[in-house]
Structures are given as C-alpha cells and as structure tokens.
Amino acid sequence: MTERADDRPSAPPAGESLGDRAALALLEYREGRSQRLADLVHEATPLLWHTARSQGVPRDLADDVVQSTWAALVRHVDTIDEPKAVLSWLLVTTRRASWDVVRRYRAQTRLTTELPDDATDTSRAIVSPHPGPEELALRTDRDRALWAAVGELSERCRILLRLVAQADRPDYRAISEAVGMPVGSIGATRGRCLAKLRTVLERETPGEVGS
C-alpha cells in the first residue's frame, strides 16, 4: 500500500455493502491506487477484530491476527480470482489464523477443560466466555436484558449475530458462510438466530422489545 502522488484524499464509500467496497478496493489497488484499500482497512478492521475475538483469541494476539490478515491480503492481492470474494477471503483468513493462534495458545498455557457434556465448545468457552451483565456495567435494563438474551443463544448464533452486527445486510450471506453457518441463517430473512433472540427477549421482558 505505497502512497503515491495520485492517491486521492479519502473517498466516500462506494458500493452498497462492505463486500462491494472490498471488491472495488482490491481492483483499484491492483491498478496502483491504494486509497480505497486504506479506507477498507479502517472500515473492516472492527469486523475482523470481532471475528478473531469470537474464535476465542486473547486480545493481544487478536491484534496480531488482524494485522497479519491485512498484510496477507496485500501479499495475495494478485491471487484472489474473484474480487467479490475479498470479504469472504478476509473473514476466512482471520478465522483460520485465529484457530492456529488458539491452538498454540492452548498448548502453551496447557489449559485443561472439564466442562459439562452439554458445553459443545469448551475450548472457546474458556478463552472467551460470554460475560455476565453484572460484569459489564450495562447502563439500561434493556441492555442488560438483551445481553442476557444473547447468552441464551448457541455459541454459533452468538458469533453470527456479533459479526453481522458489524456489517451491512448484503454482507450477511458472506459472513454466515465464512463462519460455517448454513445459508439462510440470516440474510433476506431474519433467520433462526435473530428469531430466537427476539423470542427470548420478549419472554423475559414482555412488551419492551419493540413494535
């Protein structure tokens, strides 16, 4: 991402979704214009951060994972065949790097897991528990209720909703595929994860969720 004299000042977001803007950034970068890619780094870094963190990567290591994902994109800029797939590429690269880090981290710290049988994802649960509302100083009853409802969801639904909350609706499909959720988990329809979240929230706090 070398700066060049013809780089324009920060351009307004182009395209309807993060995925569109990522595709455009790649195409322009290949032609020697790096401003859109720089903008993309700023825009999509939170999504990559939450991707790494939702896989259980500790904060300091997640910082490295995100940085090296962006470096890898620049190194592989000519090998990504389909520009539309850049967002997926970023998410999958982040997720794989996260798995590697978590595996090494666990080996290093020799974490042992003794959790109930119904905990399907013990490794991640240890590194990245869903913190209770009392630990978060959530300010309103609604925030506390929402956070508690999120805690009722499966780990996969939590991850999916955490990530799609960082993006635009046209990107939901790419995100759900990248995190290994079936198409239809969210997207054109609200999908099962959001439906469950609303159901739990309304049962806990009748009449306060909306409409």
Binding site: V150, A165, A188, T189, R190, R192, L194, L197, R198, T199
Partner: peptide, 27 residues
C-alpha cells in the same frame, strides 16, 4: 419460536443488530 425465521427482517431486527454492535463495542 414466537417469530418466524422465514419472515423478512424488520425494523426491530435492525435495531437489535445495532444494539448488539454497540454492546460488543463496549464489552
């Protein structure tokens, strides 16, 4: 489920996602 997963997303869904983004940014 009291809500149909096959229904289109509505304003309440959008608001929930916006609230989730805010909560995760704080957490």
């Amino acid at each position: 489920l009291d809500h149909d997963p096959q229904e289109p997303m509505d304003d309440v869904d959008e608001q929930l996602l916006a609230d989730l983004a805010r909560l995760y940014a704080a957490v």
